[in-house]
Computed example of a mutant assay.
Amino acid sequence: MRFMKRPNDFLFRALVVVASLSLAVLSVLVIYSVVMRYVFSDAPDFVEPIALLLVIVIAMFGAALKVREGGHIGLDSLVKKLPPKGQLIATSFQHICLIVFAVMIFFGCLQMVEATAEDRIPIIGLPESLRYCIPVIASVCIAMFSIENLLALFAQKQK
């Protein structure tokens, strides 16, 4: 269990920092854009594509962070009413579904990275594939966090 915890602790902290910085930058960009548009009547073009990238980072990394914390979407009210063995099965199934979902995101977005590698995001000129690299990274984190939670679940059961 410890072999998963250390790397996942590092990943978790890195995701928190990146997602937090992305949220801060997004907030500043939106304020800047609003001020420029309504005070100076000069809306900057670059804000929207950068903001879209930041929203993808915040959403995908935030989802991975919630998986690590066990705060992902679940039917807790139903699961809590099940007997202990049923709770174990339901929670295990939930984590397996998350792992399958992460694998599907990984391969789907990896195909999009390859397909859009030559394209550029208008205005800012960054590779279009950057939009799909973010979910690739997040899907690896989601899978790793789900595996850690699954291992912890069975380690706890054996005690």
Results as ranks from 00 to 15, higher is better:
1 M>A: 14
3 F>N: 12
3 F>V: 10
4 M>Q: 04
5 K>P: 12
6 R>V: 02
6 R>D: 13
7 P>E: 04
9 D>M: 05
10 F>G: 11
11 L>F: 04
13 R>A: 07
15 L>P: 13
16 V>R: 05
18 V>C: 04
18 V>W: 03
19 A>I: 10
23 L>A: 12
24 A>S: 02
25 V>C: 03
27 S>C: 10
27 S>I: 01
29 L>I: 01
32 Y>C: 04
36 M>S: 09
36 M>E: 05
36 M>D: 14
38 Y>R: 11
38 Y>V: 07
39 V>E: 11
40 F>R: 10
43 A>G: 01
43 A>T: 06
44 P>F: 08
44 P>Y: 13
45 D>A: 09
49 P>E: 14
50 I>W: 02
50 I>L: 10
54 L>M: 14
56 I>H: 06
58 I>F: 07
59 A>E: 10
59 A>Y: 07
61 F>L: 02
63 A>C: 01
63 A>R: 04
65 L>V: 00
65 L>A: 03
65 L>S: 10
66 K>Y: 13
68 R>C: 02
69 E>C: 12
69 E>L: 11
73 I>W: 00
77 S>L: 11
80 K>P: 15
80 K>S: 14
81 K>N: 15
82 L>D: 08
82 L>N: 15
83 P>K: 05
85 K>P: 06
86 G>K: 09
88 L>Q: 12
92 S>T: 11
93 F>P: 13
94 Q>I: 07
94 Q>A: 13
96 I>P: 01
97 C>H: 12
97 C>Q: 02
97 C>T: 07
98 L>C: 05
98 L>Q: 03
99 I>Y: 04
101 F>E: 08
106 F>D: 12
106 F>M: 14
107 F>C: 05
107 F>T: 14
108 G>M: 04
108 G>L: 09
109 C>P: 05
111 Q>W: 11
113 V>L: 03
114 E>A: 10
115 A>Q: 09
117 A>Y: 04
117 A>F: 00
119 D>L: 08
121 I>N: 05
121 I>C: 06
123 I>F: 13
123 I>P: 06
124 I>D: 00
126 L>Y: 01
128 E>G: 02
131 R>V: 15
131 R>I: 13
131 R>E: 03
133 C>E: 11
133 C>V: 07
133 C>A: 11
134 I>Y: 00
135 P>A: 09
135 P>L: 07
135 P>Y: 15
136 V>T: 07
137 I>Q: 05
138 A>N: 15
140 V>G: 00
142 I>G: 02
145 F>V: 01
145 F>D: 09
146 S>R: 03
146 S>M: 14
147 I>N: 06
148 E>A: 13
150 L>T: 01
152 A>Q: 02
152 A>N: 09
152 A>W: 05
157 K>H: 06
157 K>W: 14
159 K>P: 07
